[in-house]
Design a binder for these strands. Structure first.
Length: 475
RNA sequence: GGCCCCAUGGUCAAGUGGUGAAGACACCAGCCUUUCAAGCUGGAGACCCGGGUUCAAUCCCCGGUGGGGUCACCA
């Protein structure tokens, strides 16, 4: 039997990381099995589907590298792929159920019955009833138990009665999730339902429907939740629960996919750096853990830096410039400039593996694009000693008058200035670094000076000297 | 509260009725270096608790505790 799975988000205009992971496991499974991956938009509730919200989903999937075989933009044999366009199918199904006595009309809402009061509409069921405008439809709960073997969760069993005669079709004529889901999964020949484990208790509800329709039930795999760093279910309140935030931060899609795959699933071997093809090859639903996992960005960052090392210089530059533009540090127009491009290449090269994801260029490299830097006051001590100040001033002057501007030349200026002042090179080097970048860490000092340039370097050194007067001059 | 699920270092996560209980990220220390990062070397750190079953339980069973999910005319 050919594997067919679906990712069925509702168009909220927001790609939750947990949903992305659900999509990923569906995709990995489908690709690994040579199956079909369907994208279905569950927009029964929103009166009309907002095109933009669908784009958020398709853009997100595409960015991370997932493709689908059937979906809103790719017609397949079982479309349409918007639930809002499948109303006839649902109505046809519900009428069949009503006719069979498997469902009945509910007049509560229409007659303004108190919401808390029990529904007795089941007793009003009459032969010949059919779906009618303004009336909701409820399932006749068959009682008994619903059981199934979840690929991840193992054997699960529920008392049907606890779900009552739940609503199948709302009084506005739209189907509820549990109903539409069963109809569509069956109609679309879905073989495996892979979804978040917040749906486990929906499964018995749906199973009752499969029974009533006499449909073959798909296999189920319920994925454990993704938790935030505090152990609570990952949500917007954690700040970074949306896919777009990671894209905006300049993370690489392969790294993000890799990290997400490792959340709740682990490969057989010890290798964790796994590009998409390898994930597809190794992924097995059976290896998915039952327990929820916390999303910690550190490991994502670490994986991302591994992927960064596989990038071409130009790609890294692109990542850097995107982040700089986003941060308002660079004008988009200046990007085409070949001089700027090579400057960016130089900076990225200098930063090396310190540059672990796009947005870090702003953190570590903003000073390369600034007119002046602000030095944190707690670094004032770098400018406290008289001999250092003296060497700093000398170096500044030599920078301006340097006949050539190579790292070797810079190095000899720096070392020369230090020894003339009777200093070791280190304190001078540290002072210059702080003056130029406002930081104590970074690339080789000589590279730093070279990139900042003679005039700016001299200027920043003098400014630092002014900002932080010598210890003796302070009262 | 009812129902369902989960429980190995800070996090991810292997694993077994008898183990020195993997590995990764993070962390600490040393080396290296002009700083940081990287690299190398070393280090600290875990089987939720209580009962059983067993010659032996992290692993099996029961209970508890803790966490999560779900109880809509939302999905």
């Amino acid at each position: 039997m050919n594997v067919r799975v679906r990712f069925a988000p509702s168009p909220t205009g927001y790609m939750h990381v947990g949903n992305v992971r659900t999509a990923l496991f569906n995709w990995l499974f489908a690709r690994g099995q040579g199956g079909v991956f369907i994208l279905r938009i569950e927009d029964t509730d929103q009166q009309r589907h907002v095109e933009e919200a669908v784009e958020v989903i398709t853009d997100g999937l595409t960015w991370i590298g997932m493709d689908w075989d059937e979906g809103p933009d790719i017609e397949g044999p079982y479309g349409p792929y918007f639930q809002s366009e499948r109303l006839d199918l649902y109505h046809e199904h519900v009428d069949r159920l009503i006719a069979d006595g498997g469902a009945y009309l509910c007049y509560c809402e229409a007659e303004g019955a108190a919401p808390e009061s029990e529904c007795h509409c089941r007793e009003r069921h009459a032969a010949g009833d059919s779906l009618s405008p303004g009336l909701a439809v409820r399932l006749v709960n068959p009682g008994g138990r619903s059981e199934f073997d979840d690929i991840v969760g193992g054997h699960l069993s529920f008392e049907n009665e606890q779900f009552g005669d739940y609503i199948l079709v709302k009084s506005d004529g739209t189907p509820t999730y549990n109903f539409a889901n069963v109809v569509d999964d069956n109609a679309m020949r879905v073989t495996h339902v892979i979804r978040g484990d917040d749906h486990v208790s929906n499964t018995p509800r749906q199973l009752m429907l499969y029974e009533k329709f006499g449909y073959e039930r798909p296999k189920f795999a319920h994925l454990p939740q993704i938790l935030g760093p505090d152990g609570a279910r990952l949500s917007k309140r954690h700040g970074a629960a949306s896919l777009t935030e990671y894209r905006d931060q300049g993370f690489l899609p392969e790294a993000f996919m890799n990290y997400l795959a490792l959340l709740g699933w682990s490969p057989q071997g010890e290798r964790e750096f796994m590009p998409p093809e390898e994930l597809v090859a190794q992924f097995h639903l059976e290896d998915v853990r039952k327990s929820p996992a916390q999303f910690h960005i550190e490991k994502l960052v670490s994986l991302n830096s591994m992927y960064m090392e596989t990038l071409e210089p130009g790609e890294k530059r692109r990542l850097a410039s995107d982040a700089l533009v986003k941060a308002g540090i660079l004008d988009a127009e200046s990007l085409g400039d070949p001089e700027m491009e090579s400057y960016l290449d130089d900076i990225v090269e200098a930063l090396g593996n310190r540059f672990r994801y796009g947005a870090q260029i702003v953190e570590f490299g903003a000073h390369f694009f600034a007119d002046e830097v602000t030095i944190p006051v707690d670094l004032a001590s770098y400018f406290a000693e008289d001999d250092v100040r003296c060497a700093l001033a000398a170096a500044a002057e030599s920078f301006e008058n340097a006949p050539e501007w190579t790292e070797d030349a810079i190095e000899s200026i720096v070392r020369g200035s230090a020894s003339e002042a009777g200093l070791k090179a280190a304190p001078l080097i540290h002072g210059i670094r702080v003056a130029l970048s406002g930081m104590t860490a970074g690339p080789s000092l000589f590279t730093l000076v070279r990139l900042v340039g003679p005039a700016r370097s001299a200027d920043r050194i003098r400014r630092a000297l002014e900002t932080f007067p010598a210890a003796a001059e302070r009262k």
